[in-house]
Structure formats: structure tokens, C-alpha cells
Nucleic acid binder design. Structure first.
Lengths: 150, 150
DNA sequence: CTCCAATCGTCGGTACACGGAGCATTTGGT
DNA sequence: ACCAAATGCTCCGTGTACCGACGATTGGAG
């Protein structure tokens, strides 16, 4: 028995393709959106624009980040002056997080760029295919929803 | 002007969905495949099964990892005794990498588990949709191929 | 044959991403 | 009112992932 190629063709593994696709997205993000604000940071700002004064854990649930990662992202956004944190007066355990005016401005500034980035990312697909990709990914994501965010 | 929700619906951003999908994949990987060998590590072993004695950089190109990350993955696989590295006698800069018997055995052992993991990941889609997802992701990945791996 | 540019690997720095342990605070059951 | 369980955040350890800089080595131009 000889080896003509790898044991598995990774190009047929959705997991591998997802990793590659996300790498491409991150690369495009740096070029087209910002090399300062990352996509998880953008997601956090965006979530706060709809629900101000979220506590850290809930914010993490909204954008699907665990506690540890959320803490780091919050620290960086805070250091950049895009958000402000405060202890919840009703619950001393919680940290409530709010956008600063600078955070709002940054978010508004980046939104068109994210659309441009998306166009480049999926530009090789026609409109129908783009919609289908969105639908399939949404199905995969929601069917694998995490039971519990530690 | 009031805010009824976030400025953007991230569920319509392919980039965000890719991140979520990859998170789901990684979670499944831990449960269904191995919490010791990660998916990039598996990819490396798999690539080596098809092309023994690759140098570190080329191995990275095969599975789409940059030199720094590849170095770390190689170090971990080496520490686990799954690969063996040696200086290339023809080119002192290069490190050639080979699977050990233990590496081959581990790869063979994990392959069925990766398929099981994939079934769970995309199980909510029918066969036709799974094939379509694979096709769309492949198109996105190849249309955003990196020009140069630093 | 001798430099010089290109190349390979390393290292340090930054940023996600997650689990587990630990601490403070809150809450629910009695 | 009290204490135990639950909860929110932090800290630590591990593992991708990438960039820029650096040293060693190679190979080609002159």
C-alpha cells in the first residue's frame, strides 16, 4: 500500500475550510476595516449600541465570547477610550459597560468599511450564493448553540 | 432617534458567522475527536502522511499556517513524540519533519472521529446543503488565497 | 571567489479563545 | 437572620494566529 497523498483531503472537511475562511476574513479586516479595532471588538461595540449598560458576562453572551476573552476585549476597548466600565450599584459583582462618544463615533465610522470587507470576502459568489452561504452558516451555528457559557 | 437594537445585525455578517461556526467546530473537536490533539495539529500530521520530510515552512503552506504558528505546532507535536525533526543536510537552514510511528497511529486513530465530528457539525443540513456549503466555502477560500506567506 | 540579497527558523509582542481555580457578592432556603 | 449555593469577575495556563526583527545559511551576481 502506497501513499499517493495525504490520508485525508482536508478540502472536504468543513472545519478546515472554516478555519481557512476565517483567516481570510481576518486578513481582509486588517486591510479594509481597521488594524486597530478587531472584529470581536467591533462586535462588542455594536452590541453595546443596541443595549447600553450591559454587564460583562451578558455582553460576552451577545457576541459569543467566554468570560476570560470578554474581560480582555473589554480591557483593550477601555484602554482605547471606546467604552467605560462601572460597578453596578445594584449588584456589586457586576461591571456595567457603556459606549463613550468616541466609541459611538468609531462604530459609525467602521460600519461602511465592514460592508466593504464583506463584499471582498464573498465577492466571488453571486447574490443568491451569498444568501445561501449566510443561511447555511446560520443553520450550522444555531444547531450547535452552546448549552452553557462557563 | 431611538435605538431599537444594535446598529448592525451581525447575523447577516458572514465574518461573524464564520467566527461562531469555528467556535462550534472547536468545541465539537474537543468532545468528539481529542482534547489533546487540536485540529491544526491534526492537519499537520495529515499533510505529513502524504508528503514525508517536508520542511517547516512548506508544511505551514500546506495547511495554511504562518512560520511562527507552524513553529509552535511543530514544537508541541514534537514534544508529544508524534513527529521528528532533523536539520536538512543539503540546506542547513531547513528543518525536515517526519511522522513517527506513533504519529501515524494517532492520525489513523483520529480520522474516524473527525468524520463523526463533521457529521455533528453539519448534521442539521441535508446532504445537498452540506455539499453546497463545502462548495461555497471552497470558493470563498480560494478567491481570497494569500499572495504570500510571510 | 566574494559579497549580497533571499530564505529558513526563532523570538518577542499582540490578540483572540477557552477551561479551571479563586475571590467577592448576592440570593435563596430554612 | 443565617448559611450554603449560585453568580460575576479575575488570574493562570494552554493553544492558535500573525507581524516585525534578527541571526544563520545559502546561492547568485559580478
Amino acid at each position: 500500500m502506497t501513499f499517493d497523498g495525504p490520508a485525508e483531503d482536508l478540502m472536504r472537511h468543513p472545519g478546515h475550510l472554516l478555519r481557512r475562511a476565517l483567516q481570510a476574513m481576518n486578513l481582509l479586516w486588517d486591510h479594509e476595516v481597521s488594524h486597530v479595532i478587531t472584529s470581536p471588538q467591533f462586535a462588542a461595540l455594536n452590541a453595546l449600541s443596541g443595549e447600553p449598560a450591559l454587564d460583562q458576562r451578558t455582553l460576552g453572551e451577545r457576541i459569543s465570547l467566554d468570560r476570560s476573552t470578554m474581560a480582555e476585549v473589554v480591557a483593550r476597548l477601555s484602554a482605547r477610550g471606546l467604552i467605560k466600565t462601572a460597578r453596578d450599584s445594584n449588584d456589586g459583582r457586576r461591571k456595567t459597560i457603556r459606549l463613550t462618544p468616541k466609541g459611538v463615533a468609531t462604530l459609525q465610522h467602521l460600519i461602511p468599511r465592514t460592508h466593504q470587507m464583506t463584499r471582498r470576502l464573498v465577492g466571488a459568489l453571486d447574490a443568491k450564493e451569498q444568501a445561501e452561504l449566510l443561511r447555511l452558516l446560520t443553520t450550522v451555528v444555531s444547531s450547535n448553540e452552546r448549552r452553557k457559557t462557563r
